[in-house]
Design a binder for these strands. Structure first.
Lengths: 215, 215, 215, 215
DNA sequence: AATGAATGAGTTTTCATTCAT
DNA sequence: TATGAATGAAAACTCATTCAT
């Protein structure tokens, strides 16, 4: 994720892999800062310390690179989610960990929010027909569904909660805060980015979802 | 909101107002579909059936037009909110009406979501320092604060809810659904745009917020 | 045909017409010298003393300009043909005038040969479906058919000559000499471009066709 | 001429010859389809199933390869001509065989026409100073001259026909049909490529030349 | 207040060629 | 002899903006 060393290593990665990784990394930043149409391939190549042509060689064109970045981003968050081992926790704890993770991931990976924002402007044109992505998210549904079922069985969660409804609500509460953080800060005249504000928000979201589930 | 009549009115004296309105209207669509950098001034002028130069005459440049569109959009939703007359309703009913309105407004004005999405990519650069907008939103805070206070006093709402926290949560639950509707539809393999899906979501949001407040 | 005056006149042509004419003229030269893929839009614009963007504004893209040039070229030769007034001449004289004109036109408009050469490399992709062009050539067929019919009736031409067969043969004998003049000059070690060589060729073609028709 | 076997032969020692042949073959196709400037070295290498760098190794650069292809092409047709053994035939039969061969060779080797077309756009720059080519064509002149002399002596051909004049006319009548087959088909609205059309043309050319010689 | 033509800097993309191994 | 990666110059095309009327 972090910017690699400037000079390519002669050992660890074969050069082409290094080049591709550099480009993906640079593109992720550029696209998240400026969106697809605002991004400049020149700038991506410069950020990646790579010849511009390599971008076309490996990714076809600007949009091809954009697609690759999006897929990579989704894989990143879902992979981290899968490491949470929620099945091993009691329902309430599992849910709290899931919500906390979701919030924290966005806190630390603000680019992800910006990327999805932009992709939605393009009506998700660049991830449509990605069976790969749908596969990733089936697993997500199962994970949440499993927590809900266990919670319901144990009497700690309300019954009949649809996992997708719930996921969208959790994502809403976490994601919107960051996706709209600049306009919200502007209209309310407060800086919502600082540590105390985000910490406050994190707790609010956990309480908010908890209230619904425990009802 | 709707596309204005194609031919300019006979009331010739108001030509300039007509031209400006045409441009704002066309720009709102164009910017919401393609974002600031994706939008084309040629296309805006064409959509407005107006000479391109008029855009520069009335709005200075592309970004000036973009600012005007944003302000216009915020004024639109806040003006409609102010017509709800929430102070006249009991707290629970007032809250439900507010949530319902928020959801419905976005359902009917999807462009607003796209516009804010894009403006957040630009870090709200175009609405910063707009005292006018901050003024609009102080009134919003008061409205919500008033409902909360009354609800708390009457024992139907939990105490000590911060109006801004709550507003952000309500907005999250309504807005995110639309802002991310395309990626959500893609990753879950369902069309979230159809009537039954949005209707279902609307109720879910009302329940979700209700559970928190009533707790 | 000839390069227009460098500065655009304020009177004769409206500016846009002047600009388009300049571009067509410059493009005709450039395309005939270098072919479609060898031509450079920069060079065309420079030759036309016109801003490069005008090319895109008026002709869409490089290929659009190429199509326009081709149509213009065909119109040019066919228009000149139609001025020959062949119907007023006796068959043998008419045929001689037609052959002489064809040869002379190519002598003076070598670009036309190069242009068609190149278009044939592209399998005539840029003039396909041009009903306009087919219309132009129906008239050509009629003109030749009329001469042949009259000649046959008067007993000076052999019977049953197909006008298209004959036209292709005449065109072959005139056109090939110019289309392949460089390779022919190279392999035979003679310069076929000089006046005496072309004059000699002109007579040869007239004799050649005459021998066939009179047979 | 025909596409070589896809896999290189086991006779490993001749790898370099195989590679060169593959490249020449692929280049011939590519250049005849797209011309020198339209051809892509990437595509040639891909068609040849050979590493792009080999092209530079064996032929210097794109133009070097183009020159090699042209020379190869001329050698091909002249070699086949020399196998005709025209000296053994009576003048009229020899001439018919020569014309028939010329037409048929182009029918079967359309690439040759396209190649010369393109080379003429470049003003034969790539075959100039090729003494080798001039040598090849001196023999051609002698062959035709010999047939004419014999025919004249036997009283079956008109006297004083210049072999180069005649050769150019024969080549014209055969070559132009193919070189311009696409534009001719387009402007006359007929497909001149089909078997019956080419067969008809072949006979027309033989008659046409015959009428001139026998006169 | 309005129009059509023009501009120039910038943007994506292409392509022949070379490098390093 | 052969390969995959890399390069840099140049190409087509775009676009916000301004000019002249």
């Amino acid at each position: 994720m972090a910017q690699q060393a400037r000079k390519r290593p002669n050992d660890v990665l074969r050069d082409s892999e290094w080049t591709k990784a550099q480009l993906l990394d640079a593109a992720r930043l550029e696209f998240s800062e400026k969106g697809l149409s605002g991004a400049r391939v020149n700038d991506i190549a410069a950020r990646a310390s790579v010849n511009k042509q390599m971008l076309y060689y490996y990714f076809g064109d600007k949009e091809g690179l954009y697609c690759a970045v999006l897929n990579h981003a989704y894989e990143g968050i879902r992979a981290r989610e899968n490491e949470l081992d929620l099945a091993a926790l009691a329902p309430v704890a599992a849910m709290e960990r899931f919500i906390g993770f979701t919030f924290d991931y966005l806190t630390e990976n603000r680019y992800f929010v910006a990327l999805l924002n932009d992709e939605n402007i393009h009506k998700a044109r660049h991830i449509l027909d990605s069976e790969h992505l749908q596969g990733l998210h089936e697993r997500l549904q199962e994970t949440i569904g499993d927590i809900l079922t266990r919670g319901e069985r144990e009497g700690v969660f309300r019954p009949n909660v649809d996992p997708i409804d719930l996921y969208i609500s959790i994502a809403s509460l976490c994601y919107f805060y960051y996706s709209n953080i600049h306009t919200l800060s502007a209209i309310f005249g407060r800086d919502l980015s600082d540590r105390s504000a985000t910490h406050h928000r994190r707790q609010h979201v956990i309480d908010f979802v908890g209230a619904y589930l425990e009802k």
